[in-house]
Design a protein around this nucleic acid. Structure first.
Lengths: 242, 242
DNA sequence: AACAGCAAAATTGTCCGACAATATTGCCCG
DNA sequence: CGGGCAATATTGTCGGACAATTTTGCTGTT
């Protein structure tokens, strides 16, 4: 089951990405090379390449001489990302509505979003995060524009959600789920204008919700500024292999 | 003049980026590690990190076991990128028009785009490429959204232009320059709607021009497919240090 | 007890050399 | 001339090494 020569780096990237999305590494947490090479059993070279890739994707940050840490957004950055996502996902929703007539596209889209129709009284935060991620990814994929799918990953939906996860309530999540259904319906009906409006409404409300969150949840300072950094800050959260 | 510890990698990235934009490395050309480490006097580790970063920015492509090559777009990819740029740059233009009242923003924008007002009868292709790059970058910067500026680099304007450079005529470049002036005027007048319309018109025309180019200029096959690859294809274009 | 300063330890940045895996080229042969 | 195989070139990954830099820990002083 060894991955073929040249694909080992992907394994490391996938591992880190999943660990971050699963919340094992939280925004702001430092990623120490020595610990991770020991745990993953790969060399520093490989780990550092993985860091570079994740950094380019905007998932982690590399501070010279201080290493890598899970990216923690400032409020400003989060708002800027919402502003961009609004346009890009509206475009994706319109394209998706136009292309949904194609059987392959429709089939894939319906399969991807199937979970949103389930009648759940309430769900766990981590279930919601996964559903949310899948739903938005499905919209981008249905648009049939490969470059757009790539850009979606730069919009850091997962990161924003991971950061504000503690502020989510059951009501908010249920409301979001309902909005997803409205968007999905518009796309499935092939109504581009309605899909555009629905997604813009959904994202605007999400943005307003995030904007109202207490500022301590976000990184302080201007975007791109020096990052506060100290081992003590996250002591104990980094698990070494016994 | 030694760059400080930890910034040497940036030097390599900058060098490669410039070499590509200057046309020394053309789309599709292979980048051999051994040659570049010899020329730049850096280790393979550093060069490979630079490759990873450029690959993440979409400037080069890394094919497992076959190394790095300057990215060469398919027609489909180019069209997809135009579709995205249309929305994103329209957003940037609107934001720029709204923020142009701010003296700092206005001053910087005017300085950056100053060259477009010059009365030149005609200019060289490479001058045009540089001007074009600067103009679009200026629009994104004036929008005052840091994340948007980062995304601009993913839209591969330089790559598209480098690839089609041979098809550009003096007339086309002059027409483009005039359109830049219209966009700039709308932004400087603070008219968001006009700026939006002007940039959409400009980009639509550019897209149509590119779409009409003979297909041999673009990479064949579906996006993301295996890349044709052979040393002979570019033999002699890779200069080794004597 | 708070604190400034300094030495020790931890961590990252970069290089080098090595070897296996894979791709490309060159050559031989029918 | 085309196919096939060996030689060569190139990349993927590792491990170790050492300098630069940051972080931690200690110590004595006020």
């Amino acid at each position: 089951m060894e991955p073929r020569h040249g694909a080992k780096g992907d394994t490391v990237v996938d591992f880190l990405m999943q660990a971050i999305q699963a919340g094992r590494f939280v925004p702001g947490q430092r990623l120490v090379e020595a610990d991770l090479t020991a745990e993953l059993g790969v060399s520093r070279s490989l780990l550092r390449e993985a860091f570079r890739r994740l950094s380019a994707e905007g998932v982690i940050e590399i501070v010279p001489n201080r290493g890598a840490l899970v990216r923690r957004l400032t409020m400003t950055e989060a708002m800027e990302l919402f502003e961009i996502r609004l346009e890009l996902e509206a475009l994706a929703a319109r394209l998706a509505a136009e292309k949904i007539a194609d059987p392959g596209t429709r089939e894939r889209f319906e399969r991807r979003i199937a979970p949103i129709w389930e009648e759940v009284p309430r769900f766990s935060t981590s279930d919601y995060l996964a559903e949310n991620r899948r739903f938005h990814a499905a919209v981008f994929e249905a648009a049939g524009n490969g470059q757009l799918v790539k850009l979606n990953s730069q919009l850091q939906l997962s990161l924003i959600m991971a950061q504000i996860a503690s502020e989510l309530t059951g009501d908010v999540m249920m409301e979001s789920l309902h909005e997803h259904r409205v968007v999905a319906s518009a796309i499935l009906a092939g109504d581009a204008a309605a899909a555009d409006a629905a997604i813009r409404g959904h994202l605007s409300r999400a943005r307003d919700f995030v904007r109202a969150i207490r500022p301590e949840v976000f990184r302080a300072g201007r975007p791109g500024e020096a990052v506060p950094f100290s081992k003590a800050e996250f002591a104990g959260t980094i698990e070494k292999s016994p």
